[in-house]
Write a protein that binds this DNA or RNA. Sequence first.
RNA 1: CGCGGGAUAGAGCAGUCUGGUAGCUCGCAAGGCUCAUAACCUUGAGGUCAGUGGUUCAAAUCCACUUCCCGCAA
Length: 319
Amino acid sequence: MTEDFVTNEISKNSKKLRIVFMGTPEFAVPALKKLIEKYDVVAVLTKEPKPVGRKMILTKSPVHIVAEENNIPVLTPKSFKDPLNITNIQMYHPDMIVVCAYGLIIPEKILLEPKYGCINIHASILPKYRGANPIQRAVLNGDRMAGITIMSMDKGLDTGPMLLKEAIPVPQNMTYGELEQELSIIGSNLIVNYIDNRDNILPQHQTNEFTLAPKLEKGEEKINWQNTATNIHNLVRALNPRPYATFEHNGNTIKLIKSEVVNEQTDKPTGTVLNNKLDIACGKGTILRILSVQKSGGKIIDTKSFLNGYKIEIGEILK
RNA sequence: CGCGGGAUAGAGCAGUCUGGUAGCUCGCAAGGCUCAUAACCUUGAGGUCAGUGGUUCAAAUCCACUUCCCGCAA
C-alpha cells in the first residue's frame, strides 16, 4: 500500500524509495550498487579521501568512486559535531538510511530522521561480534559459520533490533579477504530482500549473550610458535590480505601469507624447522606447513621459490 | 617532498663496497639409474645485468638522471 502510493507519486521511473547510503570500503560497494539499481539513492556519505601509499596520493574511498560514477551527490563530513552536516542529510528527505561499514558514529538525531529507519548491514550473526571487526574475529577464532545481520540501528553499538540474518559455512582454509568478499555479496542481497519485504518482517530484539569484535591491536600479527598449528593458521587466515601474520628470522621480518595444518604430530621443540617443505613444529606437537611468504621488499612467493634464494636450515628453531 | 628495500636466464637469489671470462639454488629439455621419492647421475638450451647519458683501455659493478616494482607508516 505504501509502495503503491510512492509509485504513483513518482510514476516517471521505477525507482521509489529515497535512500541515503553511508559506507566506505570495498565491502560496502555491492550493496550500494544493488540499491542504485533498484531504488533512488539520493546521496552517499563516505569517509573523506585520504592520502594513501608511498606517494601519499589522495585516494577516494571505493564507495566514493562508485557514487560518482553514478552521478550521486557525495558528502564526506569529518564528523557530525557540526549541526550543518545533519541539516545537509535532512535536505535529501530520505525514506531510509542504509549504513554499511561507514566508519563514523551516527548521532541519534539522524537515526530518527527517515520514516523507514536507519538500517545497518552488519557482518556477523548478532548478537555475536558487535563492533568494528566481526569478519576478522570470526576467522581468527576459527568459527565454522559466519554471516550477515540486517538490523535497525539504535544509539548503541550494533545493539538494535535484528531484521534478517543469513549464515554461511567458513571452509577451514578460507581467508579473511575471501570471506569478506562473499559476505559483502550476501549483505547486498539481504538488504534488498529486507527492503522489498519489510512490511512482513518483525524486528527481533537481541539477547544479552553478545560478544565484541574489537579491532586488531599492533603486535597481534606476530606469530608465537608456542600456539597450536590451528591457532596460528587461523591468525594467518585472519590477517590475509592485510596486514599478514609475521615471524622473525635472522633479523628479517617475514610475512606468512598462506599456511595449512599438517595432520601429524612431532616431538621436536616448538619452532623447529622439520623439513624442506617448511613444516614447523608448533605447540602441543602440532605441525604447520608454510605455503607462501613475503620478505620485506619482495613479492609474495611460494615456499619452494623462497627457499631457492633464502637459507633456512632444517632443524633450526624459530623464535 | 613521510621512512626504507629492489630491478641480473622461466622462478627465487648472489655478485656491486674493492671495475677485468655471467654465477648459485631451482625449473625446463634430452639421456641414464631406481620397487620407489620435492631422490640421484650426465649433458644441454636459455642473459640488451630495467632504460638513457657520463667516467674508463675496460662498467652488472663507479657517477648523474629516468621508468617500473615492493615493504613500513598513515
